[in-house]
Amino acid sequence: MALDQSFTGRTYPPTEPYEVGREKIREFAVAIGDANPAYTDPAAARALGHPDVIAPPTFVFSITFAAAEMVTQDPKLGLDYSRVVHGDQKFRYSRPVVAGDVLTVTSVIESVKSMAGNDILDIRGDVHDAAGEHVVTAYTKLVARAPEEDK
């Protein structure tokens, strides 16, 4: 069943603040095998001009994707999440995520399309810090494959 295209442009309320911890960044850096000292050593990060350790570029996805659950789990949208695959992912940064940041995400449905029975959902997550300044925007394309019986 095709998704309701009238959801295009819908904006969801901002998430509860997420506080970025040094140790969470370290855990993520270890998980991707990245020994860059900017992720774990505050002195190394400061030497590059950052106030504290910074997060790897894709770290923020955990936060924006959790926020996007407001969209993907929205019963009114009716997305069959068991058929969803991650199609594209893009980030545009104003600055890196830094330990100590308190971030909120506002999710927007940029488009809802149906192609060949697949539903294609583009979700934008605008991430702001406690001062309201833009940090990064995440663009996530999700594809819900058509059920077999519809083909």
Binding site: N36, A38, Y39, L48, G49, H50, I54, P56, P57, T58, V85, H86, G87, D88, Q89, K90, F91, R92, Y93, R95, P96, Y139
Partner: peptide, 14 residues
């Protein structure tokens, strides 16, 4: 790049 913050945009298709 040396500094990860040098990346101002990054996108992929899976």
């Amino acid at each position: 790049a040396g500094d990860p913050a040098a990346v101002v945009e990054y996108g992929v298709r899976f």
